[in-house]
């Protein structure tokens, strides 16, 4: 029943996502803005100081991560709407176990983030990113890992809210700091990067995901973390965040609201 429940939730979310498929195109605006406006502006002022490479290819994996991060979070936020629309009441009286709802939301969010990433991917060519077969395959794998991480993060956070009015706050207080600290837009290993930012990056799941994608696309010279560190760290973070998300849903057994009450954060 667990697997079937996850499948049902994924089908539900993907059907709804398909109704909004225009979002895949609209979702390009933000990453392309970073890539071609910010990228062009900052890149030209920096000259060739980016570890030898051009700036746009350097930030491309970061921008890819940004687009995946926001898509996954947006998908996760639908939990808040789900509590308000009645359909989830029908889910709650079905024999689907509560954890399946959390796992289904994470899977559906990861799928959407991955699709959005695939839509952004062709712009790598315009940004002048050198492609090879091997780097593409490695990148597709790293993107999958990033999608699941961001989706688990989104669901773990969104599951604690019953109102969407707090979302912009969460976005500015959680998502943007994680994005800026991730090294998406600057090299973390540059000797001029403040030490505290390098330390903070070690706590930031986005940093590991972006670093892995950058290494896959541009080569091991660009890595800040060793893959032998980032792979287990990402796996661990996915496990931890999934567990946190499942916990919220499990608690919803007696209050028929999937665990969250009002605006309160839950332990």
């Amino acid at each position: 029943m667990m697997l079937r429940g996850i499948y049902a939730i994924v089908v539900l979310d993907m059907k709804r996502f398909w109704l909004d498929r225009a979002r895949l195109v609209a979702g390009l605006a933000q990453p392309l803005l970073y890539l071609f406006v910010l990228g062009a502006g900052i890149g030209s002022s920096m000259g060739g100081s980016m570890g030898g490479g051009a700036y746009k290819p350097f930030i491309f994996p970061g921008v890819l991560g940004l687009s995946q991060l926001f898509t996954a979070t947006f998908a996760a936020i639908t939990i808040v709407f789900d509590r308000q629309i009645g359909f989830f009441k029908a889910v709650l009286v079905s024999p689907v176990p509560r954890p399946a709802i959390a796992l289904g939301k994470i899977a559906a969010g990861a799928l959407q983030a991955y699709l959005q990433g695939l839509v952004v991917l062709p712009f790598a060519w315009l940004a002048g990113v050198p492609f090879s077969f091997v780097s593409t395959v490695a990148l597709l794998g790293a993107m999958a890992l990033a999608s699941v991480t961001f989706s688990a993060l989104g669901v773990a956070v969104a599951a604690r809210f019953t109102s969407t009015t707090v979302f912009p706050i969460v976005s500015n207080a959680v998502l943007l700091p994680m994005f800026f600290l991730s090294g998406a837009l600057y090299p973390l290993k540059s000797p001029t990067t403040p030490h505290w930012m390098q330390v903070a990056a070690h706590l930031d799941p986005v940093a590991y995901a972006v670093d892995l994608m950058r290494g896959a696309l541009l080569g091991p010279n660009y890595l800040f973390f060793s893959p032998w560190l980032s792979l287990p760290v990402l796996a661990g973070m996915i496990t931890l965040l999934t567990w946190l998300a499942v916990r919220v849903f499990n608690r919803g057994e007696d209050d028929s609201s999937l665990g969250a009450t009002n605006f309160n954060w839950r332990r």
Binding site: R4, Y7, V11, L12, A90, V91, S94, P95, V96
Partner: peptide, 9 residues
């Protein structure tokens, strides 16, 4: 209804 069917396995 399809989704309901899936939810009930």
């Amino acid at each position: 209804l399809l989704l309901m069917g899936l939810l009930y396995g």
